[in-house]
Nucleic acid binder design. Structure first.
Lengths: 333, 333
DNA sequence: ATATTAAAAGTAAGCGGTTTCATGATTGCT
DNA sequence: AGCAATCATGAAACCGCTTACTTTTAATAT
């Protein structure tokens, strides 16, 4: 059944050297005479030897595998991050064990323990609630963690982000400056720190700096889906909002289309700014103005940071903040 | 540095049994006296022992890890499949090593060898060209492969799909029945078997059954991106096409918006049917008519099939064909 | 030539489990 | 009570590689 696999031992025998020597050439250890190295290399080639990564992992305690915890694969925001992660992981020869969390606490816990059992060398976490349990699980993992495009409210773990507060402040201020007084704040669950502690803060900040009162009735929490956004159209009209900041592009597309289908003209009667500048912002009609963030880079930088951590390199600031912007498209005047 | 990890040996000592016994209880082997089992379980609990999956993998030659080769994480078609895969993988306790191929041959090759080195128990492949080299790499992997939402033109590997030929035939026939005579065929590279051998066949079939000549000038190959589609608008008008079948939703959205922005009314002046029924079809305006496929299920079934294969279970037909449909939305009359 | 040092190669002990096989403890029967 | 059959456990080999340590070989110095 099993195809005969050739092991380091076979190579050693065939090349008439010890396993140690073979291991050395495989690992690029310089303490090998060129002639010997060549001989071994030839045998490796001839036998088509391929080192068993599992054995290697056990012996060296390094698996060259990292875990990536992602709330939702099908959400562009996360998949763009993942792409950045993936690319630099490849660059540094790490493999990725992808683990979906569905933003579900128990699942996250289980997933982390799982990754720990698999002895990953590091973990990239996307998600926005970190319970004590989860923190414990992280610690058990005995591997560095970095938060990618996700915020660690307690600033215990390294993370790479944009300045969410400032970004939202800017976005909402823009809406205000266009004369909007009743600006809805539409995001996912307020249990998520990014919403509760960052975005909402930016929202309030923008309002108060313009002397606009905060009205809780304008705050909508729902899930990050097109459908959820679409369904929100009526409520938005009911509260007489004339604009909205939305925390997710797909959600924003839903809001946009829901409103449009309800006969509301965007941007004339209602302005929308969304958050992630994913492809949805271009595809929808009207196209959507958005906060822009370097999604790919957030992923890439996270992974790069992780490699440093795994390498025990000194790193400066544990939290890196990437620049954001505001892109005007058709959903704002 | 390293946190003290507790091993099976520690548990054995503490519980005053042998490692073998601990191993047995961990693995649910029935040959353990209930009292002993309980004692061991208690110690495991007390010591917070967690088996090292790498060691396990080496000893048992099973890693409970599978490889998933995906051309593009950010493409909804694939990420929807991946979600299905992920869910049932979780169900069966498998972890996923995600490997992006970018639909690039060399990368695919490297990736497969990589997964092989990591001793994955199985592989799910998405992609549409299988060179001899790649086939060889698959064989070396010594692990079952299944093609998910991708076609193996030589029918050597198990796969789960829809009937692409029939689906495209239906779609194009629908366009014809609306009176369109010049129907463009817009997809990705013709190097991909799914395009060259399946979709195109369906296209031709639909035309010839309606006695419409095949015009190569109506066939467009490009990459699966919004931009590419958008850029195609002019060419589409130049060849005087009045409708198009498009092989990817994002691409279709590009075509749609490109046309719209060029002043062409969809569907009045130009009808579009796309292929994957992803969320883009709902978000665009007008919404897009599409072939419907059970994306999640294709992924899920693929994974389920893989588990059977890994388990050496007898399976009936190596290629499972799931039902497709046609969903009329606003991009067709 | 010989002593000293550095470079190259080998030995073998793990890494943390699984699993085969042997052995001792139980149980069932007559 | 005596013996076979069954169950529960332990001993130890092994999975395929890395690595600390030792030995051998080569190079340089004296």
């Amino acid at each position: 059944m099993d195809k005969q696999t050739v092991t380091i031992y076979d190579v050693a025998r065939e090349a008439a050297v010890s396993m140690a020597t073979v291991s050395r050439v495989v690992n690029g250890n310089p303490n090998v005479k060129p002639a010997t190295r060549q001989k071994v290399l030839d045998v490796i080639d001839q036998l088509d030897y391929r080192p068993n990564a599992v054995a290697r992992g056990l012996a060296s305690k390094k698996t060259t595998t990292i875990g990536v915890i992602i709330p939702d694969l099908t959400n562009s925001y996360f998949s763009e991050l993942a792409r950045g992660i993936d690319d630099v992981a490849l660059m540094y020869k790490y493999n990725i064990i992808l683990a979906s969390s569905d933003e579900n606490h128990d699942k996250e816990l289980q997933v982390v323990d799982n990754l720990t059992a698999k002895q990953v060398d590091g973990i990239i976490f996307m998600g926005n609630q970190v319970s004590k349990d989860l923190r414990d699980a992280f610690n058990r993992a005995n591997a560095p963690i970095v938060f990618a495009g996700s915020v660690d409210p307690e600033h215990q773990s390294p993370s790479v982000n944009i300045d969410y507060v400032a970004a939202v402040t800017d976005a909402v201020a823009k809406l205000v400056s266009r004369g909007n007084r009743r600006i809805a704040f539409v995001t996912g669950s307020m249990d998520e720190s990014i919403n509760k502690d960052y975005r909402l803060k930016g929202y309030k900040q923008a309002l108060s700096s313009k002397r606009i009162g905060y009205d809780e009735g304008l705050v909508f929490q729902t899930d990050y889906s097109y459908k959820a956004g679409y369904a929100l159209a009526k409520a938005l009209q009911d509260v007489k909002a004339t604009a909205a900041f939305v925390g997710d592009d797909e959600l924003a597309a839903g809001v946009l289309n829901g409103l449009t289908d309800a006969g509301v003209n965007v941007p004339e009667d209602f302005e929308i700014i969304t958050s992630n500048d994913t492809r949805f912002t271009e595809i929808s009609r009207p196209t959507m103005s958005s906060i822009t963030q370097p999604l790919y880079d957030i992923g890439a930088v996270s992974m790069r940071l992780l490699t440093k951590l795994m390498n025990n390199e000194e790193i400066g600031d544990k939290t890196v903040v990437l620049p954001y912007g505001l892109k005007k498209r058709q959903s704002t005047k």
